[in-house]
Lab assay of single mutants.
Amino acid sequence: VRLVQFQKNTDEPMGITLKMNELNHCIVARIMHGGMIHRQGTLHVGDEIREINGISVANQTVEQLQKMLREMRGSITFKIVP
């Protein structure tokens, strides 16, 4: 398990697509080339996201998580399992 932190201070999309796997874990499905996450190089396709800013992603839908990420500003921390 590791923590990945980055800054999001604009309306620029993060450039990641999330999916739920068969165990209902949140997985990074795709990283858009040239997007914020791609430029930082901190997340990778297949990484499992456990928490966003200390909030568990368990029992949340992809749509709920994407909305939460769109609305966040400032420092964002993901707890991930590579």
Score class of each variant (00 low, 15 high):
G46R: 02
M32R: 13
Q5C: 13
V57C: 10
I16P: 01
N9C: 07
R30P: 00
V28Y: 01
G54I: 00
G41P: 02
R73A: 08
H44K: 13
E71D: 13
G35D: 04
I80F: 07
R30G: 13
Q7Y: 14
V57F: 03
N53H: 01
F78Y: 02
K67D: 14
S75H: 10
N53L: 00
M14Q: 02
G35S: 14
T10A: 08
Q64G: 09
G15H: 02
V62E: 14
N24G: 14
L18W: 02
N9E: 15
R2W: 03
L43T: 01
H25K: 12
I55D: 10
V28R: 00
K8M: 07
I16M: 08
R2N: 15
K19H: 12
T77L: 09
I31W: 01
H33K: 14
T77D: 09
C26K: 05
N53I: 01
R30F: 08
R39E: 09
K67L: 10
I27L: 10
K79N: 07
I31G: 00
Q64L: 08
R50H: 05
G15P: 04
M14F: 12
G35W: 03
M36F: 15
H33W: 05
P13C: 14
K19V: 13
L43S: 01
E51N: 01
L69K: 00
N9I: 12
T42P: 03
H38Q: 14
T42N: 10
L18T: 02
E63M: 06
L18A: 01
R73V: 10
V62N: 14
G54M: 04
V57T: 14
H38F: 09
K67M: 11
V57K: 01
I76M: 08
S56R: 09
C26F: 06
N21K: 05
F6M: 15
Q66W: 04
V4H: 04
Q40S: 10
I55G: 06
D47R: 00
K67Q: 09
G34K: 05
V57S: 05
S56D: 14
E63Q: 12
V1A: 06
A29T: 08
K67G: 12
M14S: 05
C26L: 08
H33E: 15
K19W: 05
E71A: 11
G46C: 01
G15M: 02
A29M: 09
H25M: 12
E12D: 07
N53R: 02
H25T: 07
Q5L: 07
F6A: 09
F6C: 12
I49D: 04
V28N: 00
V57G: 01
R73D: 13
G54V: 01
Q66N: 12
N9Q: 13
A58Q: 12
T10E: 08
E71N: 10
L23I: 15
F78D: 00
F6P: 00
I52T: 06
N21Y: 04
M32V: 14
I49M: 04
T10L: 09
R2V: 07
G15F: 03
F78T: 01
Q66L: 07
H25D: 05
D47I: 01
V1I: 15
N24K: 11
T77H: 05
M72I: 15
S56A: 14
I80W: 03
K19S: 14
G35L: 04
T17P: 00
G15Y: 01
R70C: 11
E22S: 11
L65N: 03
R70W: 08
R30A: 14
G46S: 02
H44P: 00
Q40H: 07
L3S: 11
L3R: 11
L3T: 15
V28S: 01
T42Q: 13
R39F: 03
R2E: 11
V28T: 02
Q5D: 10
D47V: 01
R39Q: 11
H44C: 12
I16W: 10
G15D: 04
Q60I: 05
S75V: 14
I55N: 06
M72Y: 09
K67C: 14
L3V: 13
H44L: 06
M68T: 10
L43F: 15
Q5S: 15
R39L: 06
K67E: 14
R73Y: 05
M36D: 10
N21M: 04
I27W: 05
E12C: 07
G46V: 00
G35M: 06
T17R: 11
N24P: 00
E22P: 11
G41F: 02
T17D: 15
Q60G: 05
V45T: 14
E12F: 04
P82E: 09
H25I: 08
M36W: 15
V28I: 15
E48G: 04
M68D: 15
T61D: 11
C26P: 14
M68Q: 12
G34L: 04
M32K: 15
L23P: 08
I27V: 10
I52L: 06
G41Q: 06
V62Q: 08
I55H: 10
V62K: 06
D11Y: 04
N53S: 05
Q60R: 13
R73L: 06
K8Q: 13
R50I: 15
T61A: 08
D11W: 05
H38L: 03
Q60V: 06
I49C: 01
L65R: 02
N59T: 13
G54E: 08
T10Y: 07
A29P: 00
R70I: 08
S56Y: 06
E63Y: 08
G34C: 04
R39K: 13
T17Y: 12
H38T: 03
R39W: 02
E63H: 07
K8H: 06
M14Y: 04
R50A: 11
Q60M: 10
E48K: 05
S56T: 11
I37T: 06
G54R: 05
I76F: 05
Q5I: 08
R2P: 01
A58E: 14
E22K: 13
N59D: 10
E22W: 06
R70V: 12
L18E: 00
S75F: 10
G34P: 03
I16G: 00
N21D: 13
I49W: 00
G15S: 02
M72T: 11
C26H: 04
I27S: 05
I37C: 11
T17L: 14
D11M: 07
G35I: 01
L69D: 01
H44V: 11
Q7K: 12
T10D: 11
Q5K: 15
I16V: 08
S56C: 06
T61E: 10
E12V: 06
R2K: 09
A58I: 14
G74E: 03
G41T: 11
L69Y: 03
M32C: 13
I76N: 05
T42D: 13
H33Y: 07
I31Y: 02
Q40N: 13
N24I: 00
V45P: 09
P82Y: 02
R30M: 06
M72C: 13
N21W: 02
T77C: 09
M32N: 15
I37H: 04
V45G: 02
Q7V: 13
Q40Y: 06
I49K: 01
Q5V: 15
K19E: 11
K79Y: 03
T77G: 04
I31S: 01
E71Q: 09
